[in-house]
């Protein structure tokens, strides 16, 4: 088998495999252009009539607001959380990966332990705490903790620590000899060298805050401040009829920003390291 044949084989495999993996998403998409009575009944997977109007109906379904409002709100929250997470977790990760200080092992265990307690039992105490701070019905309860590396912060710190450990120590030791401060080392050597990891942190922070539901529900009362994931739930009663087509249509739309960001930014993070070329 020559090189070209191999490449074609690899491509064919990827195409079939991707289609298979995407079947549920395709099902969701087809559901978004179906009438309600065609979605769950057995029969053809394709709609008998393509109801693109589901998108328009879904967009305007919530009285007084459009999904445009919810998208803007989601962006506000997610961008703040990305900035906060990158700021706070890179700093902490540098300390854990490179610096020596008392109680280091203990604090690292604490860091990991915060990932291990199920969030369900923390819901109510945390709500009481934030409501005493007067943060209910604002974005503070959702965004300020990100600046202090909470929520998924521990995950990000640990991710960055693993990456920083992979960066050769000779680089920063050389800088120490040159008389650089720790902050300079952090900023000029470590940060550029863990770009892919920082990108991953930013991407995950964006994506998870975009998808988050329960925290947003707890801390936002005013529908004008609702996010996309809260907006999607506004279709869902526990008894009355549900416009599945519109719900699926908005679910598909809610994927667009994250997929676009991933599509555009992946080159930056995957190729980023090759161009800095520190390690080659």
């Amino acid at each position: 088998m020559n090189y070209k044949q191999k490449r074609i084989l690899k491509h064919a495999f990827l195409i079939v495999f991707t289609l298979l993996m995407l079947y549920p998403v395709i099902w969701l998409f087809l559901g978004s252009v179906k009438a309600n009575h065609e979605i769950f009944t057995p029969g053809n997977i394709f709609p008998s009539e393509w109801l693109w109007s589901n998108y328009k109906k879904g967009w305007n379904a919530i009285p007084g607001y459009t999904f445009g409002n919810f998208f803007i709100n989601s962006f506000k929250i997610s961008i703040l959380i990305v900035i906060g997470s990158v700021f706070s977790t890179t700093l902490a990760a540098y300390a854990f990966a490179r610096l020596e200080f008392p109680l280091k092992n203990f604090l690292f265990t604490v860091l990991m332990a915060t990932l291990m307690l199920p969030q369900q039992v923390l819901l109510v105490p945390r709500y009481v705490l934030y409501s005493r701070l007067g943060w209910v019905n604002s974005y503070k309860a959702l965004t300020v903790p990100a600046f202090a590396a909470q929520f998924s912060g521990a995950f990000f710190i640990y991710l960055l620590v693993q990456f920083i450990r992979g960066i050769p120590r000779e680089l920063d030791e050389a800088a120490v000899v040159d008389g650089c401060s720790q902050f300079r080392i952090f900023w000029n050597i470590i940060m550029p060298n863990c770009k892919p990891a920082i990108f991953s942190v930013a991407l995950f922070a964006f994506m998870w805050s975009w998808d988050d539901f329960l925290n947003q529900l707890l801390y936002i009362n005013d529908v004008g401040k609702y996010t996309v994931s809260l907006g999607l739930r506004l279709f869902l009663d526990n008894a009355a009829a549900v416009s599945w087509g519109s719900l699926f249509a908005m679910s598909i739309l809610s994927l667009v920003p994250v997929v676009t960001i991933f599509f555009l930014a992946q080159n930056f993070f995957v190729e980023g390291i090759a161009t800095t070329g520190v390690k080659g």
Binding site: V124, Y127, L217, L218, V223, R233, L236, D237
Partner: peptide, 17 residues
């Protein structure tokens, strides 16, 4: 107003606070 999902959790958190 919201969907049904999570409504009970939210109400009981509010009651506690």
């Amino acid at each position: 107003y919201s969907g049904f999902e999570g409504f009970r959790n939210k109400l009981f958190s509010q009651v506690m606070a």
